[in-house]
Write a protein that binds this DNA or RNA. Structure first.
Lengths: 122, 122
DNA sequence: TAAAAATGATCCTCATATAGGTCATTAAAG
DNA sequence: CTTTAATGACCTATATGAGGATCATTTTTA
């Protein structure tokens, strides 16, 4: 990369990322789920946003399925409105995990078992 | 960092976001799943990163469950290595959707339909 | 109905996540 | 073993996501 002085310094590259259909559908689906759950519980966008520690604008984007949101924010919101991706009692994704876990036997320790070590921060 | 020049006007606020245990576990779990799937398919980190159009560094963070990654990147990677969150044939999350959908009747059109729900308990 | 609240959309600024590089360490070939 | 590839960890510059206005609609409720 060259950076001449004078002469147009930085032509913005504008990295336009592309997403697969699958990702777009998944995100759109999740957003819809969240929105539906929020409505069901009669929570205003502002309320949820506050509780999640995010702005109302971001919540809007999340509910719209915008793929450019940090996953942490999405997970937080999902949790707050009650949309569970993983669940203690074998819901949704957890099933997938069991399968893969048994098959490969390598999962991040942070979610491995529970056994000793209370480790209940938070 | 010092910020001289008259009382420094813009002391960076450094918004440190906090995440619930649930979100952290979910993310860590998903990351582990992705990593396991990648290994299983014998794909190098660089390969997957290239295919997803992201950097190797970002892939590392994703596999580590870093909550500050855009959800689009995570979904792309998940798709590439074969970890399906939602699936055409009623897997995982889709079940949740059916339930909520029937109950509320408001879902994004892009994912609506698919004929009658099979709902065959995975 | 009128008033108040919630929402959707847009703009601007700042904080920061990402790309891309380096380097040390580990694993895989040869 | 030696060589090569893959990984993990770190750093910096910059492209961009997020916060925080504002305003027009739409929805609620009084």
């Amino acid at each position: 990369m060259v950076y001449i002085r004078n002469e147009c310094k930085v032509m913005p590259k504008s990295i336009t990322r592309t997403y697969s259909r699958y990702s777009r559908d998944a995100s759109s689906l999740l957003g819809g789920l969240i929105r539906a759950a929020r409505k069901e519980r009669k929570l205003t966008a502002q309320e949820v946003a506050d509780r999640a520690g995010i702005s109302r604008g971001l919540l809007q984007r999340i509910e719209k399925g915008d793929l450019k949101c940090e996953i942490g924010a999405v997970f937080e919101v999902a949790t707050i409105v009650g949309v569970k991706l993983f669940d203690a009692d074998e819901t949704t994704l957890t099933r997938h995990i069991r399968q893969t876990e048994d098959k490969l036997g390598l999962l991040p320790k942070s979610v491995r078992k529970k056994s000793k070590a209370v480790r209940d921060e938070f």
